[in-house]
Amino acid sequence: MARKALSLLPSPLLIFFVFALVSACVSPQRDPAESPPQLVPSDWKPSLEQVQTSIQDELETKAQKSQQYLNRTSQNLSDLTDARLFITYILLMQNLDGKEQKTLFDEQKNWLAKRDELARSEVVSKGGSLAPLEYASAFRQVTEKRLAELEQRLAQMTRKNK
């Protein structure tokens, strides 16, 4: 009877195989010593700077600027700056190990909440057509500072990895 029961148990080799498979599935964390996974191919470098400069130039030289034009253009510039920040954040993220990635994620999450607070504090024309312009330009200024900061960190990281 005992022998029959033992024969129903899987072999030690099978147990080891299943354990290894389950471990691999439930524990996706990489070995910290491993190099980070490539999220973005290294030769893919999207650029938004030219379109941003072009919009900025038009904003500065256009003769007649209605409030709607100013609001839309300012929002477009803010969106572009935010997109540039997003790209830089992803590029920086892929150069970090798991623990550093978590730190940067938390840091960015906190910063995003603060950015909104800062931009909102600049709006004095509540309920008026000037409010979107006040918000968008403050949002952009704060975002540009953060972009410069992350770009600097990315440049340092790239030099270090070379």
């Binding site: 004095v124 024309s125 008026g128 057509s129 000037l130």
Partner: peptide
């Protein structure tokens, strides 16, 4: 009123 939502106090 259109631009600032009021005649701002400040």
């Amino acid at each position: 009123f259109i631009h600032s939502g009021s005649v701002p106090e400040f």
